[in-house]
């Protein structure tokens, strides 16, 4: 996973609530067995069917920060949604509320999710609609979003922040505790079910 420290880019206003992962990338794109190359499926239905869709507008075509309404990433656990956003050039998604699995997947894939109160999202929407070229900086080190003369703090749990700043792989971290895992396994009751052998 790539480390995330700070990112500056332009931002696209996605004025929608409940952006589910089926909208971020439909199921037909999930048949692939690769981990990259999902940009063609990103918001494909809205891109295709809605000429005015925000990401179809040239002034937002190069945005790398997505600013959405509450309950972003609901529904399916597909990490392909996070990969598609990364493949589509996004490094940060800002929303008042994220679905748990989406947010968790983001921390594994290196996509930063930033929770801001609705009023701050509204203000950011207004600013980037007034000036689509407005640079927005998301600083994970300082835990703040900055644009124009506005600075908004955000919170993230310190452990996740550390992992993202260092770009650390979770499996490697857990493997430091294999002795603990072995001890736990040794104490499990023998009657706990096993899938093998097949009965």
């Amino acid at each position: 996973m790539d480390a995330f420290t700070t990112h500056t880019g332009t931002a696209a206003p996605l004025r929608r609530t409940n952006v589910d992962t089926d909208q971020i990338i439909p199921a037909e794109y999930l048949k692939r067995i690769t981990r990259t190359g999902f940009e063609d499926g990103l918001f494909v239905a809205w891109r295709t069917n809605e000429p005015d869709f925000v990401l179809n507008r040239p002034e937002y075509a190069n945005a790398s920060i997505l600013v959405a309404g509450p309950d972003f990433g609901t529904g399916s656990s597909r990490e392909h949604a996070n990969w598609a956003l990364l493949d589509g050039g996004f490094r940060v998604v800002i929303s008042p509320r994220f679905a748990d699995i989406f947010r968790n997947n983001s921390t594994k894939a290196g996509l930063l999710t930033v929770v801001l109160p609705e009023a701050d999202v509204e203000a950011l929407w207004a600013a980037i609609e007034a000036d689509p070229a407005l640079p927005v900086t998301v600083d994970l080190q300082a835990e703040q979003v900055t644009y124009g003369d506005v600075t908004v703090p955000f919170q993230i749990d310190p452990y996740t922040r550390w992992r993202l700043l260092e770009g650390l792989d979770d499996v490697g971290l857990t493997e430091r505790h294999l002795d603990d895992i072995q001890a736990f396994e040794d104490a499990r009751p023998a009657w706990k079910p096993k899938a093998l052998p097949a009965v």
């Binding site: 656990s77 392909h80 699995i101 968790n104 997947n105 594994k108 979770d170 499996v171």
Partner: peptide, 10 residues
Amino acid sequence: FGIGTSEVEH
């Protein structure tokens, strides 16, 4: 509970 692919690997 449901998990993503990185967690499946984990």
